[in-house]
């Protein structure tokens, strides 16, 4: 992989993509728009969905019930709670909010069988947007992304090219936030820019 050396912007902590993302910019009419969502908070929340105390506590701390429907995400303001397994959710929140959220959850869930793990640095988020975003995903993802099947609010844990990812669609453009393990992020970024070649790619900061 050709690495484009670009330093971390001043005052920020490095991300896995700082030295991979090339110059910001690209054609205005590009069908694909890519950006990295730097250091969003990520908590793995575990608990049993049939444990009322757990669900009540989690709902109280999050402000919204963790979704019980597979492959969906609940959102409240900028926070997304993504279903990842019958007793597992990934809570994605604004950068720097994860510690407070973790404490809020811990206190709301005291006495229940649960687990919270801070995985904010385990993965990063690549935002893929644009008229060709769906076509780009389809090049490496075998699940049905047609709007009749996969729309806003839907999420999936699956393979994208040779990386395991979790992604969710959050608008009709369509736009997707793709969570990818930190060490796979350079590969996936390069793959996405390559897959977007035929549609034109714009990189945003």
């Amino acid at each position: 992989m050709v690495e484009k050396v670009g330093p971390t912007p001043p005052g920020l902590d490095p991300t896995p993509l700082d030295r991979v993302i090339g110059p910001i910019g690209g054609p205005a009419e590009a069908g694909v728009v890519l950006s990295e969502r730097r250091h969003w908070g990520k908590l793995v929340l575990r608990g049993e969905p049939d444990d009322k105390k757990f669900i009540t506590g989690a709902t109280k701390a999050l402000g919204v019930a963790p979704p019980s429907k597979p492959n969906t995400a609940a959102t409240i303001q900028s926070t997304a709670i993504i279903w990842t397994a019958p007793n597992e959710w990934l809570v994605v929140s604004e950068p720097g909010t994860e510690a407070a959220l973790e404490s809020a959850l811990e206190s709301a869930l005291a006495g229940t069988h649960h687990a919270i793990t801070n995985v904010s640095d385990h993965s990063t988020i690549i935002r893929l947007s644009g008229t060709a975003a769906r076509a780009v995903l389809a090049k490496g993802c075998a699940i049905d992304l047609h709007p009749r099947v996969f729309g806003v609010g839907q999420s999936a844990q699956t393979n994208l090219a040779k990386a395991q990812v979790i992604f969710r669609q959050f608008d009709e453009m369509p736009s997707y936030d793709i969570l990818v393990r930190a060490s796979f992020a350079p590969y996936l970024w390069a793959w996405l820019t390559d897959a977007g070649l035929e549609f034109g790619v714009r990189v945003e900061g």
Binding site: R46, H114, V119, S120, D121, H122, R181
Partner: peptide, 9 residues
């Protein structure tokens, strides 16, 4: 509960 944190650290 078991969670991978390989890349967290």
């Amino acid at each position: 509960y078991i969670t991978s944190v390989t890349e967290q650290w």
